[in-house]
C-alpha cells in the first residue's frame, strides 16, 4: 500500500471538511473493498477519512412503518437485529449471508451501497425495498441513487448517513453465490410494498444492480414462484465471465426470483 494520511472524523461535519481539504481523499467505512484495493496498490488516495468514530451514523431505528439503519452499521448488527428480523426478515437474511464472519464484523451498509459493487447484496435490497438513501445533503429515492457499476449519484463530498427501508408486505432474497468469491453470481430480491411489486437483480448486470421489470410484471398479477420462474430473461447487458455466461445468468435470474418468492411466502 502507498503512503496516505489517516484522519479519524468525530462528526459528519469533521468528515466532510477533512475530505474537502484533502488533495484526493476517500471516506473509509468498513474498508472491506477499499483496504484490499490499497494493499494491491490499485488506488493511491492522499487521505483516508475514517468514519468509524461518528456515533450518529450507527444504529437501527424502528420507525413503525419503516426501519432506518445508520450508514456505519455493520452487517453483523443488521443480521442480529430483532427489529430487522421482525419487520423485514428478508433484509436480515441478506445481511447474514454477506461475505464471511470477518467481513460481516467490519463491513457497513453505507460502505456497501456507496461502493455499489455489481455483485454486492445490499444494493439489491435498497432497490427492491424502495429504500431512501439519506445523505448529509439530501435524500435519494432508490431508483435515483445507483449509476452503473461501482458508481452512484453521490457528489464527491457527500456522505451517506442512513438508509430508510419501508416495511414491505412481503420480501425475499435468494442468492446464487459465485463458487470462488461467494459474492452474488446472481442475487434477486423480490418485494411487495404498499401494493407495488419490485424485483431487483445483483451480480448479473454489466451496469450493476437493476430492476427486472418482466418479473415485476409477472409477479404483479400472480405472486408465485412459478410465475417468476416462467419469465425468460434476455441476456442482453448481462455479464459473461469465467464463472458464468450471460445466458446462464439470465436463466439464474428467473430461478433465483422464484426462490426469493418462495422465501418471501
Amino acid at each position: 500500500m502507498y503512503q496516505f494520511n489517516y484522519q479519524k472524523a468525530g462528526s459528519q461535519d469533521d468528515a466532510v471538511s477533512a475530505l474537502s481539504s484533502a488533495e484526493d481523499g476517500k471516506f473509509l467505512a468498513g474498508g472491506m473493498t477499499l483496504i484490499p484495493t490499497l494493499k494491491q496498490r490499485l488506488a493511491q488516495p492522499s487521505d483516508l477519512v475514517d468514519l468509524s468514530g461518528i456515533n450518529d451514523m450507527v444504529g437501527i431505528q424502528d420507525g413503525g412503518d419503516s426501519i432506518t439503519i445508520g450508514a456505519m452499521t455493520r452487517h453483523v448488527d443488521v443480521a442480529n437485529s430483532d427489529v430487522v428480523g421482525s419487520k423485514i426478515p428478508a433484509l436480515q437474511h441478506l445481511a447474514s449471508h454477506i461475505g464471511d464472519p470477518q467481513v460481516r464484523n467490519r463491513g457497513t451498509i453505507g460502505g456497501s451501497i456507496a461502493n455499489n459493487d455489481p455483485a454486492a447484496d445490499y444494493p439489491a435490497a435498497v432497490l427492491a425495498l424502495n429504500a431512501t438513501v439519506i445523505t448529509n445533503k439530501r435524500e435519494f429515492a432508490a431508483d435515483d441513487f445507483f449509476d452503473g457499476m461501482f458508481a452512484t449519484n453521490l457528489e464527491e463530498d457527500e456522505l451517506i448517513t442512513a438508509i430508510r427501508f419501508p416495511v414491505p408486505e412481503k420480501a425475499g432474497y435468494a442468492k446464487f453465490p459465485n463458487p470462488a468469491s461467494r459474492y452474488a453470481l446472481v442475487g434477486v430480491m423480490v418485494a411487495q410494498t404498499g401494493g407495488e411489486t419490485r424485483v431487483s437483480v445483483t451480480g448479473a448486470g454489466q451496469d450493476g444492480v437493476f430492476r427486472a421489470s418482466d418479473i415485476e410484471s409477472a409477479l404483479s398479477g400472480n405472486w408465485s414462484a412459478e410465475a417468476a420462474k416462467g419469465v425468460k430473461m434476455s441476456d442482453d447487458g448481462l455479464n459473461s465471465d469465467i464463472h458464468a455466461s450471460a445466458e446462464y445468468r439470465a436463466h439464474l435470474i428467473s430461478v433465483m426470483a422464484s426462490r426469493a418468492v418462495d422465501a418471501a411466502g
Binding site: 463458487p179 470462488a180 469465467i242
Partner: peptide, 23 residues
Amino acid sequence: VLEGCVYDADGQLLTGSYMDYTM
C-alpha cells in the same frame, strides 16, 4: 468440482486470486 486455473489467450492469469480461483 471447484478448482481450475485459467489463463487468457495472452497469458494473463484470470484466476489470480481467491475472487476467481475456487478453493
